[in-house]
Each structure stands twice: as C-alpha cells, then as structure tokens.
Design a binder for these strands. Sequence first.
DNA 1: TTGTACGCGTTATCAA
DNA 2: TTGATAACGCGTACAA
Lengths: 337, 337
Amino acid sequence: MTTGKESKPRRVTAKQVAQAAGVSRSAVSRAFTPGSPLDEGKKRKILQVSEQLGYRPNALAAGLQSRGRSNLVAIVTGDLVNHYDSEILAKLMRGLYAMGKWPVVLGGSAETSEAEILEVLAYPLDALILRGGSVDESVATHCAKLNIPLIVSGRVMDAEGVDCVCCDNMRGAELAVTQLIARGKTRLGYLGGLAHLSSDQERKAGFESALTKAGFKPAILEHSDFSYEGGYEALTGILSNDVELDGLFCANDAMALGAIAAGRQQFGLSIPSDLSVVGFDDIAIAQWPSFQLSTVRNDMDQTVSQILRLLTERLDQPEKASETILIKPEFISRGTH
Amino acid sequence: MTTGKESKPRRVTAKQVAQAAGVSRSAVSRAFTPGSPLDEGKKRKILQVSEQLGYRPNALAAGLQSRGRSNLVAIVTGDLVNHYDSEILAKLMRGLYAMGKWPVVLGGSAETSEAEILEVLAYPLDALILRGGSVDESVATHCAKLNIPLIVSGRVMDAEGVDCVCCDNMRGAELAVTQLIARGKTRLGYLGGLAHLSSDQERKAGFESALTKAGFKPAILEHSDFSYEGGYEALTGILSNDVELDGLFCANDAMALGAIAAGRQQFGLSIPSDLSVVGFDDIAIAQWPSFQLSTVRNDMDQTVSQILRLLTERLDQPEKASETILIKPEFISRGTH
DNA sequence: TTGTACGCGTTATCAA
DNA sequence: TTGATAACGCGTACAA
C-alpha cells in the first residue's frame, strides 16, 4: 500500500522515441504524418520503437498547432431517461466517430446546468451541438465570441451564424389530428410536456389549429413533463374530472404510453375503441408488442445526417450563411388510434 | 453565399488580451488563476477586457503543462438502446461533472469498435472508464503503456493496476432462484443474454448452482441478446416446444419484459400465477404500472459512486494497489413472481 | 507585485 | 531526405 500524493507518471514523448531510435524529433513526427518525406527503413525503425515504448502522438499538443483542430465536439443532450434523447445521442455519436470527431457529452439529467456548458467552452471545441435540455440563447453569444460553431437541434434558434435542424412540429401535430378525426374521433385532448419548450408549444399550436380548421374545439389542453409517470397521472386526473374524451394526442411517446396504461388500468378503457392515443417521436419501445403505439415519427436518422452535414460544411466554410432545416414528420399507424 | 475553403478564425489568446489591456501576458494568466498575486485594479481591468474580447484560457494548452491535466475522461458505454446503459451513463456523467472532469463518450451502439478506443487514447486522458461493450483485455495493455488509468465496471478484468466495480452476479442469480422457489415454483428456466459476456456467464452459473443446491434441475437454459424483442422470441420458442415452465429468470429486465409480453399475448398466460418472471438490473421502466417487474437490483448509484471514488484515489495515488469492488445485489419484489 | 523566460509535446518551415 | 528552429497558448519559477 502506498500513501500520500505521488507525482503523475508522464506519457512517452516524441523526444524520447527519437533518442531511443537514434533519430531526430522531426523524423518521429514525420513517421506519424502520412505523406511526409522519410526514409522507409528509418520509418520502420521509429514505428517499432514507438510500439515498444508505447508512444502515440499527443492529440492535444497536435491540436494546439496553427491549423490544428482539437477534433472535440461537445453535445448537450436532454435527460437520458427519455428514450428519444438516448437513442438520438447514440446515432449522433456514431456519426461523429465516422467524421473523426469525439463527443464530449453534457447534460443527460433533468437539469442542464448552464454553467457546465460555459465551462466546457474553455476547450477549443470544433463545434457545440445543442440537442436537448433547456438552455438559454446566450450560449450562442459565447460560442460566437469563441469562434465555436453552434448547431442547434430540436428547436430553432434565431441567432447570427447558428445552424438549426428541427422537426416540423406544427405539421406533425396536424398529422395526428387528421388521423384521429379520420377514425371518427371528435372530442380530442392535448397532453403537452414542459410548457416552456418550443417543441411543446409548436405541437400544441399545431393541434389547436388543425382542430379549429376541422371545425372542432379541444376537449382539454393539459400539461405534464414528458415522462411516462406524468402521462399516467395526467390522464388519470383528466378522466377523474369527467372530461369527455375519445382521442388524445400526446407531445411525446412516453406520456402516451403512460396515458394508455392509466386508461386501461384505472378506467378499464379499451384502446383505441374507447379512447384513441397518439404519441410523438416514435421511440423504439413504441413498437414493442405490448404497446404498438400509433405515433408521429420525429426522424432521428434524417436529423442526425443533417446535423452532420451542417457541421461538415461549417468546418469547411466558417463564414457561410447559416441554415435552418425542417425535418418532415411522418404518421406511423399502429394499434392505438 | 461563399465558396471554397476558408481559413479557420482563431480564438482570442492571452497575448491579445494583454496588448488590449496594456499589461503583460503573465498578468492575464494570473487574473484567471485564483490565489495568484495581482493588483486588484489590474485584475478587474483584465477581466473586463477579456469579457469584451470573449477571452477564455484554452483548457487544452493549460493541460499541456507539466503538472496539468486534460480533465478529459473517456467512457466506453454499451448500447444505449439498453436502458440500463443509458441510465447509468447519465449518472456517471453527472458524477464526473461534479469532479470537474468531462466525459468523452465512446460506444453507444451494438458494435463497440476496438479501433475507436485505441484512437481516443491519442488524447492524454485523465482516465478511461470501461463500462459496457465487449472489449478485449488488450486495452489494459495500451492504457498501461500510455499511463492512462483504467477503471472497468460491469465485469472483472484481472490486469495489473486496473480497478474494477462489478455487481455480484452469482449472488443476484441466487436471490432470484430463492425467491422463485419460495413462491412454490420448481420448473425454472434461465434466459441469458449474449453468452460471451462474463455478466451473463456469472448469472447463469449462479442460477444453476442455486437450483442444484435446492435439489432441482433447470427446466431450460436458453440464450438471447439482452433485448426486449429477443426475450419475446425466446419465450415464444421455448413454450412452442412444450417445455414445462413455471418460473423464468432473465439475465436482464428488457428480456424479462419481452418474455412477459410473449407469455401473455402468445399463450394467454397469467403472470405470475401461470408463469413467474424475474429480471435483472431494475431499470426505470421495470416499475411502470404496466409492468411492475420483480427483479434483482444492479445498483447504479453504488456502482457510480464506487467508480468515482476509485477514480479520485487513482488520480491522487497513481501507484496504489488496484481494487475490485463487488456491489451487493438486492431482490426487488413486485408483481411478476 | 511585476515582467521575463522557459517548458509542455506537437507540427510546420526552412535551409542544408 | 534531413535536422534545427519557430510557432501554438498556457502556467509558473525566477529575478527584479
């Protein structure tokens, strides 16, 4: 057993490799830079010594160079308890690996601390991807000052030089309402998530406008928190108050699943004959045999590929005009509507 | 619109702030180093100019220093489609933020590429946390050569200087078997996940040993892939082959939920009177009203806090003896056994 | 309290 | 093809 603070053992450097191999430091650097002019035998020797000593060029020091990049990209994700957030995070990370970028992940829990984001900006990030959490727009100002490209997804941020990728939430809500009405449902309710999020506001607005256009009025407009438990409690509350309802559009899948469970267990409702329920996002469990949830697909693959495209272009052309991409939602018809 | 490759705009440096504020560059450095001797008025001036220019000390360059750290910690996670993996990742990330460390997240999908891990070792990481994915032990060798502390969780790795935190899987499986037998179930089956993972092997071994000790034989030993769909298909297959079964222990919750759905929908079974099902992990959806799954808790909070403790101690004492921590599982009695 | 000078590990430039 | 040398941006020992 050892006690007390010990000195940190240091990593092997190019200098040490150079000495051990009997070459100059520059030669070592060249051995690891494809296309550099270097004698083939000398290169082999260097690589062999490096292997033996466990040498790898330090990516940090390389990123310090004039034209160097850190290849670090920060991602701010929403609460990973929400399956949409964890699923799209996985896809986004894979895309970044393929680009040779490494994701530094922030958030992941209910409260996304603004301070955390500002702290991580101390790193010379290649970009910051704001995918979830409720973060103030002032982040855009900080990024701009630090020359860190900002890409926002899941909402639209109207700031200079900020690229956005967002689902057409209004359209998605309209799709849901149209499909419910097509099934003969007329007393429709809306179950929203956190009301301060623009995605919720847009879905709600889409719901109301589509309903009005069809000549109906909302049976109820309720809010919860995007969680399964929240959806369960919300529908329990609504039905306990004798609200007449034959269709419910929920702002995400988790709440829809919770509402379905409450309807069945607390009120003995048959889904969809007594009550139709439609969700939003199309997370993996929506298609589990137990659920077979009808929902509006918030396409993750399209979203991720657009984010990656915008990132690539922005890195290549820092001054190019910013874009806002709207992803088209699609109604997924399963068994709950 | 702009075309072609443009030069990357550079970040404001301490030198520029020094010039703008009319002070030396070291003064700027001191202004951002708490406890450094510096005239109060000069410090205010520097901070004000920095604010205006948008200057932040570059964490990368700072980490290059002799006694500096990168404060970057890589985490290898398993497939984020598995809720256990995404839930524990979120908790682990929060713990790292609290320590002032930033998580570079790898994996997250079915195939964890070994090459990805080796590539990220180009960064002078403070540590590598191997939490999921099926990664070869050779990673330990690479980490050792690069002086990057390695902490493994979810399995035990018997390598020099590697700390481990793992659930006592044998004991967990025994708990499940004991509880099933206590309910009068005697024809018990085991539904495993990916058979090459040690966690699966240990749970299976625990199942068999506990059953033998109680004087019974396994009704069936089956394997799947840790997914809901896999569990659904596996039980469908088992029951289609007329295996007599009154209790099923699954190597994780997702498969247990799938198996329950299959039993109910495909064979009209009543759970638990016809068939008891017990899972492993205790993910969040295990306690959803629709499921109320009886399971063995693989405690995430304990696991995470042990990982963080080992990390802290390892950073403080690089040469201290390595530890292997076994987390005690707990049976969570709900409605499916 | 201040500024100068050096080191961190790398890549890029330049003259040989 | 080579090796010496200058950046890169920062912290800090050292001398003033």
